[in-house]
Nucleic acid binder design. Structure first.
Lengths: 332, 332
DNA sequence: GTGAAAGCGCTAACAA
DNA sequence: TTGTTAGCGCTTTCAC
């Protein structure tokens, strides 16, 4: 900072001149390479301080062929992706892991074809060293997209492609919910599933049925409003329901509202179990008993898998499966 | 894609050879510069197609001195920044605006000194062309940080520094809430404010008081739980409250829960107005009447201001102030 | 309208 | 252990 004499931003060359050594030596010191005399290291460090030198990322990337950044590609929720707490949690986990490694994620929204082309172009231009793909509807578009670019990538949710992925045992989660409802004495169960074209939804439902058998089911679309509608429909056909499992917390929250407005008390009359353990679960009254999905950890795992793959591209695709966990609160 | 013959990724040089022109010409075509013969343009385009060429970002950045990316620096909410819908909404607005310009935001979390140093270093290395600063507690740390780096920057919330900013008229929002409560006949108002060391909180409170006069007030910290506590305290001292204004939706949601659990009906017995118009406002039952803060638009405006500043660094810092808007739903 | 050539700032052989 | 040198792939004067 201090003592800068020139107008240009200082380069390796400037530091070298001040320290009385060669560019290469300065580069070595900057990059923490051994084999540099202690005294010289000290002199270089002083020169760096004096000149206010900071390495130029573009120049470095050009020769190392490393961008030092990864893409966090998201899609779903109709554009307002980050308003959705799910993506936010993933992002938190990703950021938290990455920053320990001096890497930052580049946020990209893949909601239209144009956007996808744009992202693809960016990846092909070497703007990032790899990609993290997160989508509520894991479009094949999205994954194939990266396959084309030939970059390391990690997907949230199982994938058939030769890509790494991170997922949660959704069936186990559904089963957890069913067992809990059953064990508290509920005998007339019903479920509000997610959209049936989403694998995750089906898995949660399947796991639930393994334990609870076939039960009345209405599909929602993961929103509070759809949870309300579903619950209303369910109640119309089965007024004596005493336990409901919703495939996510938002729909559970909607169910809660309908239940209460029809004079039923939760959990006394009807027990409700959600899925996710999002902030909505805690904001609800009664607080939601729910199946926790360790989303932040999963985001972190994605980042970890990706970084490993970037460091050693010869590594085969890997995966990490997480176990969901029942969090018992007040709604069941 | 097709016809690639070499193992390396194709460069301008390769395209030039295939098209039978010089590197410079290819560069011109790629960058859409006029003054290139139509036929040659066509030939170059074909060569690009044939070779599967994509420009190298690092190389381009090195000479243009433009990273083609901006930093989205966030802090607050103790690390789980994006779990907070507020940041998510800002991010959505930012991403939405930026993508139209081929720019993507680099996510950075400034929650510790180490993290801030890291971010500062990144900025100084030219990793981004500017920064967007968003914090619930607009630390001076954060803003001064960028001032040092000398990069264009835009802050969410008014700032004293010579930086651009975007803000909302919080006083107006508070006044809007007060007038609404008053006009529906409430005569015993109370307010749940945000932390008193946050400017935003004070502004909302001040605006409310201009219209409603001094009313019982308890400070929360923007969480549902703190809203519950505050409402409980308020009720203990003023059981006849018939209208409450909370400085954000989450606290309003907490107030709602306490009100209902003490047998009061909303809005009949007590009317409640929140602030933000976050997703929580819609998820609540009754749905929250709230003061809408156009957060996405504000995020987009930040991005717009930043891009303008990057394109023409001689531009002076600018600002944009948004008007909040009362959204009447079911709670008041 | 097009090409030749000079660099942007850095790393990484290779020599010394 | 240190310095010399050759690029990385691109944009951009400056001639032609």
């Amino acid at each position: 900072m201090a003592g800068r004499t020139t107008g240009r931003t200082p380069t390796l060359e400037d530091v070298a001149r001040v320290a009385g050594v060669s560019r290469a030596t300065v580069s070595r010191v900057v990059n923490g390479i051994r084999n540099v005399d202690q005294d010289i290291q000290e002199a270089v460090r002083r020169a760096i301080e004096k000149t206010g030198y900071a390495p130029n990322r573009a120049a470095r990337s050009l020769v190392t062929r490393r961008a030092g950044a990864v893409a966090l590609v998201v899609s779903g929720a109709g554009g307002h992706v980050f308003g959705d707490p799910f993506f936010g949690r993933v992002a938190d986990g990703v950021v938290d892991f990455l920053r320990g490694h001096g890497v930052h994620p580049l946020l990209m929204l893949a909601d239209t074809d144009a956007a996808r082309d744009d992202i693809l172009a960016h990846l092909r231009e070497g703007g990032t060293d790899g990609a993290l793909l997160v989508s509520t509807h894991p479009d094949d578009l999205l994954t194939s997209m990266v396959a084309v670019a030939g970059l390391p990538a990690v997907v949230f949710a199982r994938t058939l492609q030769r890509l790494s992925y991170v997922d949660v045992e959704n069936e186990v989660g559904g089963a957890l919910a069913a067992r809990h409802l059953l064990s508290r004495g509920c005998r007339n169960l019903a479920t509000i599933s997610g959209p049936l074209d989403v694998r995750t939804s089906n898995e949660r439902l399947a796991g639930f049925r393994v334990e609870a058998g076939e039960t009345p089911t209405v599909a929602g679309n993961f929103t509070v409003a759809s949870g309300e509608e579903a619950m209303t429909t369910l109640l119309a056909g089965h007024p004596n329901v005493d336990g409901v499992f919703a495939a996510n917390d938002l729909m559970a929250q909607g169910a809660l509202a309908v239940l209460q407005s029809t004079g039923r008390s939760v959990p006394t009359d009807v027990a409700v179990v959600g899925f996710d353990d999002s902030s909505a679960a805690l904001a609800c009254r009664p607080k939601l008993t729910t199946v926790r999905q360790p989303v932040e950890d999963m985001g972190a795992a994605m980042a970890e898998l990706l970084l490993a793959r970037i460091q050693d591209p010869s590594l085969p695709p890997a995966s990490r499966i997480f176990e969901p966990q029942l969090v018992i609160r007040d709604s069941a």
